[in-house]
């Protein structure tokens, strides 16, 4: 304790605190360089210079994508919490409570309906802050609801995939989300509506092995970890070090699994262009002339 905390009354202390947020400076995970928070925010949460793409919350992601940062939240269906009454080192029901308090989300998906360069789109974002973005019954239902909304609105469905895989605390019911979400993808195919997947860091396991690899087009943010088995599991199985860049976005593009690696600042324009081309829409008026 220094002298000022003793002298300054409590109310003013909080005022001081607000002026110096903990995250005023952000350390680049790649280079260790310290960057001013405001500069990172202005650069779509990408570190200027190193171009390292930081994780963004689902709300920030939707703001980056929708025109005027405005959209309608898609109401997501309620599912039973903790159907298996699961407990590991902690109760699953407690993990859910904590994740909800931390993120303000019901579960791992946030879905919005709005305009992207004027074109109506449904955008679903998986938030890694919610139990690593893992896929359980609630996330599965949310994904399906997003697809149904796209069907109703005759709009493209854009999914920012992320997450470690199936949510183990829901046991077999999480595995069942793989076929269930695949059913939703098939509905979009039948309706000839574009389904665009954007792979973000990290996307592995049952998420990659279902809807995240079934898009009409696969985009990926630079440097994202994308794979089926996690790197640790593979290392333990083959007992050798993994090659540099293995299971990163660029590796998946080079091996034919991803169409393009897209910088976050170009993501909105890329998604909008793909949507227009697949939906046979004209160029937006400002550019058409």
């Amino acid at each position: 304790m220094n002298w000022i905390s003793d002298v300054v009354p409590p109310r003013i202390k909080t005022l001081f605190k607000r002026e110096t947020p903990e995250n005023l400076w952000i350390k680049c995970p790649d280079t260790g360089q310290m960057v001013f928070h405001k500069d990172v925010e202005a650069n779509a949460w990408v570190i200027p210079g190193s171009e390292h793409h930081l994780s963004v919350s689902s709300t920030r992601r939707l703001k980056l994508m929708f025109d005027e940062q405005t959209w309608l939240d898609v109401a997501l269906p309620q599912t039973p919490d903790d159907p298996l009454k699961f407990r590991d080192s902690k109760r699953y029901s407690d993990r859910l409570k904590e994740a909800r308090a931390k993120t303000g989300l019901q579960d791992a998906f946030k879905i919005g309906f709005g305009r992207v360069e004027g074109q109506p789109m449904v955008i679903a974002v998986q938030d890694v802050e919610f139990i690593t973005g893992s896929l359980g019954a609630s996330a599965g239902e949310a994904f399906i609801k997003g697809a149904q909304t796209a069907l109703e609105k005759r709009a493209p469905y854009v999914v920012f995939a992320a997450g470690g895989g199936a949510r183990m605390q829901e046991g077999i019911l999480s595995l069942m989300q793989m076929p269930r979400t695949t059913i939703a993808v098939r509905m979009l195919r039948d309706a000839r509506l574009p389904y665009i997947v954007v792979l973000t860091n990290p996307t592995t396991g049952g998420i990659t092995a279902s809807y995240a690899m079934l898009g009409d087009v696969h985009l990926a943010e630079p440097g994202a970890l994308i794979g089926f088995a996690g790197p640790r599991v593979i290392e333990q199985t083959i007992r050798e070090k993994l090659p540099e860049g293995f299971q990163r976005s660029e590796y998946l593009r080079d091996h034919g699994m991803v169409d393009m690696v897209v910088h976050r600042r170009d993501m909105k324009a890329t998604v909008a262009r793909l949507g227009r081309l697949m939906m046979k829409q004209p160029l937006p008026e400002t550019e058409a002339a």
């Binding site: 793989m178 695949t182 990659t208 092995a209 279902s210 809807y211 995240a212 690899m213 079934l214 794979g227 089926f228 088995a229 599991v233 593979i234 199985t237 083959i238 993994l242 090659p243 293995f246 299971q247 091996h255 034919g256 699994m257």
Partner: peptide, 16 residues
């Protein structure tokens, strides 16, 4: 879970 399996798209193959 192996390098070759990942290289050839294990996740995509399962999903498909």
């Amino acid at each position: 879970p192996g390098i070759d399996a990942e290289e050839r798209g294990q996740a995509q193959a399962i999903a498909a």
